[in-house]
Simulated assay, not measured.
Amino acid sequence: MRTAVITVAHGRHQHLRRQLDGLAAGSHLPDLHVVVALADPDVPGIVAGDARRHVVAHDADPAALPLGQARNVGAAAALERGAELLVFLDVDCIPGRDLIGRYLDVAGRPQHGDALLCGPVTYLPPPGPHGYDLSALEVRPHPARPAPDDGDVLAGTDYTLFWSLSFAATARTWQRIGGFCELYRGYGGEDTDFGQCAAEAEVGLRWVGGAHAFHQHHPVSNPPVQHLDDIVANAAVFHRRWGWWPMGGWLEAFEARGLIERDAEGRPIRLSAPASAKSS
């Protein structure tokens, strides 16, 4: 099965380099690695030197990156080059040694081949002065997602757990789902939307033990207040499409901080300043 890895890159150049190193050290090399340079002209120089790599430049507003659209662009480029299995890997993720092999193995089984395949993701601590030792990464899957034992496959029913850090789909399954909705801009919402599209298309969900990916450390805030406007706007897009509000934990945290208020229908309304600041 001709396999393509698809990565969307905007900045995070050292993370991308480590991903390339991880792919090169894998037990199975992909036939193709499509890297979508999303408003980032420096990406081609980073991935040069391997005939399997193909860069697609995709212009966008850096302040409102269309991540779902960029993944669709990468998938289209892979399919044009004959890919039969699409493996999506976030630029922050280093693939485990057996990630490609496990996705290939499960995609080739009749009972799983038409499903959406998701592997466990371990969040890494900050790297040491010489980066990460790729041969000694410790597997500690994120507790919010299923993590079957290596070699096992677990059928899932909760499509809200889908995330795009690491997943795979055959070309037929990808086309059946229809790709990512391209209405989302910036941070939040497009993964949950994709999961709902898969559920609506009656595509199965499988959690693939042993298809490990390792998410490299970068600074974050909780809740992600730097993405407040994106989350509010994308939540409204999602609600129009599916009739319920996603990212509920973040919206509740924003409301508690006085950054938004909710109307009678639950719609988040961006406030010009936190409530505490208004009352002072």
Rank of each mutant, 00 (worst) to 15 (best):
P127M: 14
L23C: 02
R81V: 08
P143S: 13
V43H: 03
A48S: 12
A24P: 01
D152R: 10
V56W: 06
C93T: 10
R97L: 04
H142K: 00
D59E: 15
H58R: 13
A37V: 05
H112E: 15
A78Y: 00
D61A: 11
A60P: 05
D98Y: 04
P146Y: 04
D50T: 07
D152K: 05
P125H: 13
V34I: 15
L154V: 08
D59T: 03
D114R: 07
V35H: 08
A64D: 15
C118L: 14
A63C: 05
V43K: 02
Y132C: 11
V106R: 00
R97T: 12
R109D: 15
H130G: 08
H28L: 15
L23T: 00
G82S: 09
V56D: 06
P62I: 11
A136L: 13
A60R: 00
L16I: 06
D92C: 09
L29N: 07
R18I: 07
P66W: 09
L124G: 10
E138R: 03
P129K: 10
R109N: 06
V106N: 02
P30K: 01
G96K: 00
D42P: 02
D61R: 05
G68C: 11
L79D: 02
G108M: 10
V55N: 05
D150V: 09
P110T: 10
G49I: 05
G128P: 10
Q69Y: 03
L116F: 00
R109Q: 15
P126C: 13
R53T: 12
L38H: 03
G119H: 01
L134K: 03
D61T: 06
E80C: 03
R102G: 02
A147R: 02
P66G: 12
A48Y: 07
V91D: 15
A136H: 11
V47Q: 07
V34S: 02
A63R: 09
L67F: 14
A115L: 10
P62L: 14
R53Q: 08
H28D: 14
P125L: 15
L104V: 11
D114P: 00
G96S: 12
D133P: 05
L104Y: 02
P62K: 06
V73E: 12
V121F: 02
Q14P: 01
G45A: 09
V34N: 02
P148S: 06
A76M: 11
A37E: 07
L32C: 10
C118M: 15
L86Y: 02
S27I: 03
L79H: 08
V153Y: 01
E84T: 05
P120L: 04
V91P: 01
Q69C: 12
I46S: 07
P62H: 08
H130M: 10
L29H: 13
